[in-house]
Design a protein around this nucleic acid. Sequence first.
DNA 1: CGGGTCGTTGACCGTGATCAAGTAACGTGG
DNA 2: CCACGTTACTTGATCACGGTCAACGACCCG
Lengths: 245, 245
Amino acid sequence: MTSDKKSCLVEKLSHYIELDELAESQLASLEEHERTYHRHQEVYSETDELKYLYVVKRGWFYSYTDMPDGRRQIIRVLHPGDIVGFPDIAFEYATSNIRAAEDGCLCPFPKQKLDAIFEKSPRLTALLFLMANRELACVIDTLRAMGRMDARERLAYFFLDLTARLRITNKDMTDTIRMPMNQHEIGDALGLTHTYVSKTIREMENAGLISRKGATLTLAQETRLEDMVDFSDRYSRLDTSWFPS
Amino acid sequence: MTSDKKSCLVEKLSHYIELDELAESQLASLEEHERTYHRHQEVYSETDELKYLYVVKRGWFYSYTDMPDGRRQIIRVLHPGDIVGFPDIAFEYATSNIRAAEDGCLCPFPKQKLDAIFEKSPRLTALLFLMANRELACVIDTLRAMGRMDARERLAYFFLDLTARLRITNKDMTDTIRMPMNQHEIGDALGLTHTYVSKTIREMENAGLISRKGATLTLAQETRLEDMVDFSDRYSRLDTSWFPS
DNA sequence: CGGGTCGTTGACCGTGATCAAGTAACGTGG
DNA sequence: CCACGTTACTTGATCACGGTCAACGACCCG
């Protein structure tokens, strides 16, 4: 409703293409409503009937799925300016759960609102299409990590990915980030137990790869971490050359 | 070029919505050219400059990524009627490799061709958007399998997923499929070694869950397999209710 | 017949899970 | 202000799933 500064969504998207007035107003209409959530609050659950997508306005969120016996897999961490719900858009019922990683705020909008964009803004349509496919590429990177990396490499990949993402909207960011997720959640994101996350992080700290101070994390040797996991930044540059007019 | 019967792409997409003439002709234009590949031939490689997407016309293909030390992760198996390259569309250079799992045929088309669809067919645009996001949901299912399932469950999930996909275009299919991938490839798809794939498949066969005969695989107890992995079919039904006009 | 690919089986080992105990930081209420 | 829960992190002992390495058999094709 209220927006004192430029929306995070517009800021994030205009990193990639110039947005005209129509596009900006269409995006603004996605953020007409907002709702706050407190740390660890559920936004929606698997098997909920789902007619909405969300734009993250403030705070970190994450999507996850549970197995019947309680095993949990965190799929993707969501930051301000991200659109939540692409993988669920194809179905009547949600395929994943969303939860607040810390206190934050979301803007819900009905799927239906995409129509107007599809009909009147081919260029913005292409960008949304691109964002969904970029997310696909990122989940694939995570899949690669889970399938073929050991614990230390997975952690390296996870931290590098978060850092690269946060740099888009935070151009003067250094190699230090705030890390509001606990080790249990990190483990759920990487297919590890919180116990082993603790041991491995400690080990990486001793090796001088990273350092911690409270909820702050520093990538002390970013390029060595990148080499460990053959890291590619999927955020700083996208191919928009084929877009319409 | 030549097309004796209806295209697989049109067949697959018209499973979900009625396609008008414009849409059908636009889709047909994606299959103007074709090229054959033999078993294990590369289609394109990571870091290739990439201006094309592909439609699978015949045969199974798969996408994969390699680690510098030779570890390999197969991302996704591709069947006739599937569109190849969504995760790469966002970037100038490919993020994955594509390879033929058996002899087959692909139809390449330039990314640029999506423009005409984005500009003139909002309904088809929405469907392509949906297909990309459905693929995202499927990769997420695989991620869940890799993060939180043991070897037997991963195999169960893998076979169930392939079967559900093949049923879309093959309505009278039973619980038996042709499985042209070898155990090394299956292992690369599931983060296992071919040795352990062999042991686990044998074990599942002894337990009466599946049976094999040459390159044919039968899901002897499909519902028990489904319960093991809390399986959801992502193929038979999609939510298209929010589509434009 | 010889060589290649593919699947099978066994012995051994290591990464990371499991279980358990302990510490530190924090907010709450008495 | 301290007693107390709760949550987060750490560390150690033990164990098992699945990796590694190696050998062998079946099959196909030249």
